[in-house]
Design a protein around this nucleic acid. Structure first.
Lengths: 245, 245
DNA sequence: GCAAAAGTGTTCACATTACACCCATGG
DNA sequence: CCATGGGTGTAATGTGAACACTTTTGC
């Protein structure tokens, strides 16, 4: 087989040569937000009822199409704000889902975000019967590929809370160690030893005793603490060399 | 302010009601692949020269627009295969980049993948002067937002090699412990103690001594090993509860 | 006084680190 | 015989896990 160099016409490519991209306009791009909250010692996710005939009575994530003049982060912030009224929430991109038939309306490529909100700061509108907090553990199926998206985001959350202090976004600024421990247990799905948990948290040096106590609890009130973000930001990250497999 | 329920017309939404998505057709979707290789004890990445006037003499990742009938994983496998001839390579989605002005051709939302290939299995075509392996450490800037994409993928790689045995994709099936250690050092950017490294790796139980030796090395030849994937797959994952911060 | 959870240390097992000498091969 | 890296063990330190009793508050 003789290869003729001159005949090797380079295929136009998006990264190397000018191309007309408009013949590829046939997708919509969307974001879907997995909004986690912590309530009644349970990890919950905020879902909306789908009215699509294909998914009658199924629940779906909160999402929206991405406008032609916004990026994905902006779009997911917008969804959060429109649906919950919350701003300045923790939001992290996780994965983009692109199965060809994932949406009945046509080709919709969707980027999943997870968000951590304080359910105390968000009071569901009494009028809005469509939105509901669901315990994550009880969800069996959802509309579209949203169960897959939820599972993917939950796994990411589980990994992330082990190495970064994002979990505090799910609590009030002031929290007791019991609340924090129950939260870790709900997220990780395991039981933790109380004394070891306290030692470990205090050992980070980022837990501030603010000399306040719980109130109106039906038992001995615990101390309240805050997470010291500014000290955390200064601190140098350890270079963990694990090789766990 | 009186709220009139009847006047609260629900906005059509992609997840809850039937919508015509075609008015959102104005993006192209692409994939960009960060192809890592290990050569001369250095972590390298395969880049192509951009011919775009905006990025004259800059290097870019290998990528392509995603066809209307393929998903993102398929598209990135296709790019790998078309550019390197390699199939069955390790490929992992990392992040989707969507800044509005990230591409001069228009609105291109790009999903980044990283790939781990064995540079011995891939011999650069002598004719293809456009493709080149670059030491990751020496790259200062690239076309588009590709330096950001590279950094993001490198960080993901660094995290992932600590907990999953993907690093072996960068080596031959049979490897010496020296090669493996240098590879870990190149990826993580740190020095490791030789004796402790050997102990740790053997302690996993997944390193098979195959009773073969290195050949044609200018020093005492070392033993060759393989990674026992089937034993790894059987093994149960540990439940690591870190809380490192 | 009873129920519920707060607060508090020690011990043991295990994992990680630091560290130095002799050996095998090619040239 | 020299250069290069292969192969090996031990002691010290640090980390994680297990575990029980007394105290405080609301009711």
């Amino acid at each position: 087989m003789v290869e003729n160099m001159a005949s090797v016409r380079k295929k136009p490519n998006i990264n190397t040569s000018p191309v007309d991209i408009s013949k590829y306009f046939g997708y919509a791009v969307s974001v879907d937000c997995v909004i986690f909250g912590f309530d009644e010692n349970t990890l919950k996710v905020l879902l909306i009822k789908s009215d699509l005939p294909e998914f009658r009575d199924e629940w779906s994530l909160l999402g929206d199409l991405v406008g032609l003049n916004e990026d994905l982060d902006s779009a997911s912030y917008r969804v959060l704000k429109e649906r919950t009224g919350l701003k300045d929430v923790y939001l992290e991109q996780v994965h983009t889902f692109s199965a060809i038939d994932r949406h009945p309306a046509g080709r919709v490529v969707s980027t999943a975000y997870f968000s951590l909100v304080n359910v105390q700061h968000y009071h569901l509108s009494k009028k809005d019967h469509e939105l509901h907090w669901h315990p994550v553990e009880e969800i069996r199926h959802m509309a579209f590929d949203h169960k897959l998206i939820l599972d993917t985001c939950l796994n990411r959350l589980k990994e992330k809370v082990k190495t970064e202090p994002i979990i505090f976004n799910l609590l009030e600024k002031k929290f007791s160690l019991r609340q924090l421990q129950y939260l870790y247990e709900a997220v990780l799905g395991i039981k933790l030893d109380r004394r070891n948990f306290r030692k470990k948290l205090f050992a980070t040096g980022f837990i501030n005793d603010i000399n306040e106590m719980e109130e109106n609890v039906p038992h001995r009130p615990g101390k309240l603490y805050t997470f010291n973000y500014s000290k955390y930001k200064e601190g140098s990250k350890k270079n963990i060399v694990a090789i766990d497999f």
